[in-house]
Simulated scan of single mutants.
Amino acid sequence: MDTTTDGLKKAAILMITLGSEASSKIMKMLPDNIIQKISYEIANIDYVKPEERDTIVNEFIEMQQAREYIIDGGIDYAKSLLNKALGPQRAKEVIDMLNQIQLRERPFDIARKADLQQLTNLLLGEQPQTVALILCYMQPEKAAAVLAEFPIEQQSEIAERIGTISHTSPTIITKIEKVIENKFSNYVENKTEAVGGVQTLVEILNSVGRGTEKNIMQVLEERQPDLADEVKANLFTFEDIITLERSDVQKVLRDVNKDDLLLALKGVGEDIKDFVYSNLSNRQVETMKEDMQFLGPARLSQVEEAQQKVVATIRKLDEQGEIYLRRGESDVIIS
Rank of each mutant, 00 (worst) to 15 (best):
Q102C: 06
G328R: 06
D318Y: 13
Y277T: 04
E230A: 13
I334H: 14
E153H: 12
T212H: 11
D331H: 03
E221D: 13
K84A: 10
Q155P: 01
T287Q: 14
G209W: 02
G267F: 09
K191M: 15
K309H: 13
F238I: 07
N234G: 09
E153K: 03
A66R: 00
M27P: 04
R254D: 10
K183D: 10
R223P: 01
L123Y: 05
D76F: 09
A312V: 02
L253K: 03
M138P: 06
K214S: 11
L8T: 03
E62C: 03
A85L: 12
H167Y: 14
F275R: 08
I56W: 04
E141M: 11
A264N: 07
G296P: 11
E153W: 02
V188E: 15
L14Y: 02
G209E: 13
M217S: 04
V48R: 05
L135Y: 05
A312F: 05
G321H: 08
T120E: 12
D271H: 15
L265R: 08
R67Y: 12
L235G: 03
Q250H: 02
V285F: 08
Q224N: 15
S23N: 02
G7T: 04
S247M: 11
L220F: 13
V252A: 05
G211V: 09
I241H: 03
K49Y: 10
Q199Y: 08
E239D: 12
L14D: 04
F150K: 11
Q100L: 10
N186Q: 12
Q154S: 13
R67A: 06
D72H: 10
L133W: 06
M97F: 05
L98Q: 01
I134N: 04
R315V: 06
S330P: 00
T243W: 01
S39T: 15
V219R: 14
